Computed example of a mutant assay.
Amino acid sequence: MTDNANLKALSDAGVSIWLDDLSREALTSGRLQDAVKNGGVVGVTTNPSIFQVALSDGESYNEQVSKLAADRATLDEAVFAMTTEDVRNACDVLMPVFEATDRTDGRVSIEVDPRLAKDTEGTVAQAKQLRDGVDRPNALVKIPATVEGLPAISRTIADGISVNVTLIFSLDRYRAVMNAYLTGLEQAREAGKDLSQIESVASFFVSRVDTEIDKRLDAITGKDAEAAKKLKGKAGIANARLAYQAYEEVFSTPRWKNLEADGAKPQRPLWASTGVKDPAYPDTMYVTELVAPGVVNTMPQKTLDAVADHGEITGDTITGNYEEATEVLDALERLGISYSDVTAQLEKEGIEKFEKSWGELLDGVQAELDKAAK
């Protein structure tokens, strides 16, 4: 619930507001509880970068670190214990939302170790460990949408585990993710699972697309420079709008209708990376320009505050704009900017970024364990 008119309008338009942030301080201070009670927040996402920042604040975790050190926990065991505890407690905060929305919202995500991004078997195994470690029905396990991640998504869904598929940049990969979800549901049905208990979102990244494409547009000189300039800041939104078009297509097929008749829920598109990187752009544009029924927008706190303060919600800003969105991507190709090259590079960089953050997280936790053991 929220009294803020902008956030209420966003929610009323069919957008679920999730917070892209989690820390123990947010839990112990009551900040997360307040965001859920009064700020319109109905879900939380995390990733290795967020945990790295949260756990670098040693004070909030001192007591647990001391106990883990005394128990002679390994580094991986310590990180697992610390992250799953935060997610478990956040799940408890969101449980009333989970129950009030028939298990759709009130979700909290936790990501598999990013070093497993290209390891199908390892991803499947850790998804089960995270499900069991958090032990809450409203937890989502995040699995990267790598080629190796696709079969892991199907197998995890087939096991009845709800999944947040992350690091999606291209439309082709998004369609493969939706196919993996449907395949998993079909396998779950064959195994006698209750499909109504399985939930999934597909995290389609937005601002990073503009960051990379704008850089390439800026490098264009000569006769095409003016055309390039006009395309800046348009690719991310166009790409996401076409993703929603793909979502509408897939979740209206006979294959989907058959699963829906057995209780399955659609895999909702989730707009990720919605914080604006370029200060020249409106700080709410990845929210206000991506409004449509049945989507999730997961925002960093700064973006959520900006939307609450001055976001102009004008209803559905996606459907009806597919032709214009297609033209944006076509215009980029005509200028020599390869869509497939951009999206492949962004996936590679996304994995590397999370691996780097995970490494920093491990280093930080090891240092704390060593300190506590002295």
Rank of each mutant, 00 (worst) to 15 (best):
A100R: 15
G40F: 04
R88K: 12
E25R: 12
I143T: 04
E85D: 15
V209K: 07
D262G: 12
A191R: 14
Y181D: 05
A5W: 12
L140I: 07
A127S: 13
R216E: 12
C91V: 11
R103N: 15
G122L: 03
L130A: 06
G192A: 08
S56Q: 14
Y322L: 14
L217M: 07
M285T: 11
L27R: 06
T101K: 12
R268G: 10
K348H: 12
Y286R: 02
E77P: 07
A152Y: 02
G192Y: 07
I213Q: 04
L7F: 10
P254A: 14
N258C: 09
Q129D: 14
Q345M: 15
T314Y: 09
D113H: 03
T45W: 04
V112C: 01
L19M: 12
N297W: 05
T303L: 08
T211H: 08
Q366F: 08
W18G: 01
G192S: 06
A280Y: 04
T123R: 00
G311F: 04
Q197R: 14
R31V: 11
T298D: 00
G350Y: 02
S357N: 11
G311V: 09
G364N: 12
G184S: 09
Y322P: 05
L361W: 03
P114N: 00
S11Y: 08
E260K: 15
Q52H: 06
D309V: 12
D119L: 03
N164V: 02
L10G: 00
G14Q: 10
D113E: 10
L27K: 06
D363F: 10
E226F: 08
S49C: 11
